[in-house]
């Protein structure tokens, strides 16, 4: 069992959990993820590592309530435990060859770019950061990102905070006026695809983190496969980060939505909405 040491609500339906998991924390690095099961009957679901503390033996994840498992997690509080927690999985982000990086986080994608910002900052290469959300209350990790970024550009769809519009509007503006070696974009698939289209004409290196459906997360089932530059890659062991300009996003979107009906049905069942 893995104990929840802290739980903090960051926004409606978004919680941050600090989990006691020394084995996962020991070698964790930015860009990697974990897989957890809430209970003995649970499914295996991947979550990106939002932070880690190797000495304390903890891994921090952000969870947005979108379905059955995340709903079950939302019912758990500090002091409760979950059945399984394995990691770190996937490859760490490799930003070592870049001097100036633009990090772009959409929604809880901000969780993924948080450890990257922290690391870059510690290397004396504080990145510019664009954080996007629908509305002000959904802009996550603002304090942390302010601390680690060179400059922070919040964006809201409704203009309730920062710039009004999508992250892509800000990215388009920034890459015209500033010089970056790379862009790392994390968020929903449509957002990552859109960022790639913005950077494609200039050929600016753009890295995205693929949030495919996964089962084992160790390369033994191929459920998370993505087509990258015409080649089949497994997001869990070859990624999750890939060159965004080479990703077949249309295929990725189809694959991500494949189990949506079954998932919705199960979510309704566990909430007692369907008998």
């Amino acid at each position: 069992m893995f104990k929840i040491l802290d739980k903090r609500q960051l926004a409606e339906n978004v919680n941050e959990y600090v989990i006691e998991a020394p084995l996962a924390a020991k070698n964790a690095a930015p860009g990697q993820f974990v897989i957890l099961r809430v209970d003995a009957d649970g499914e295996r679901v991947p979550f990106t590592i939002a932070d880690y503390d190797r000495e304390r033996g903890t891994v921090t994840i952000l969870v947005q309530t979108v379905g059955a498992t995340t709903y079950q997690l939302a019912q758990k509080n500090a002091g409760d435990s979950i059945a399984d927690f394995v990691g770190p999985l996937g490859n760490p982000t490799d930003l070592s060859r870049f001097e100036k990086v633009l990090l772009v986080g959409g929604g809880i994608g901000g969780a993924v770019i948080h450890p990257q910002a922290k690391l870059l900052n510690s290397l004396g290469k504080a990145p510019d950061v664009v954080l996007g959300a629908r509305t002000k209350e959904l802009l996550l990790y603002m304090d942390e990102m302010r601390r680690y970024s060179s400059e922070l550009f919040p964006m809201t769809d409704d203009g309730s905070y920062g710039g009004k519009g999508f992250v892509t509007d800000k990215v388009a503006e920034l890459i015209k006026t500033r010089k970056y070696d790379a862009v790392l974009a994390v968020g929903p698939l449509p957002m990552m695809a859109a960022v790639c289209e913005v950077t494609r004409p200039s050929g600016l290196k753009t890295i995205v983190s693929m949030n495919s459906v996964m089962v084992d997360g160790t390369g033994m089932c191929g459920c998370c496969r993505v087509t990258v530059g015409g080649e089949r890659k497994y997001a869990c062991v070859d990624g999750p980060e890939f060159d965004g300009h080479l990703i077949d996003f249309a295929e990725a979107r189809l694959r991500q939505g494949f189990y949506r009906d079954q998932e919705k049905e199960h979510y309704c069942r566990i909430r007692g909405e369907v008998k």
Partner: peptide
């Protein structure tokens, strides 16, 4: 445990999976 695929067109379509994925589920 690493499953093989055929590398034919359409293998990325939803509804195509490895036996490992199907049996593990």
């Amino acid at each position: 445990g690493l499953p093989g695929f055929m590398n034919i067109p359409g293998e990325g379509l939803p509804g195509v999976c490895s036996a490992n994925e199907f049996l593990t589920r």
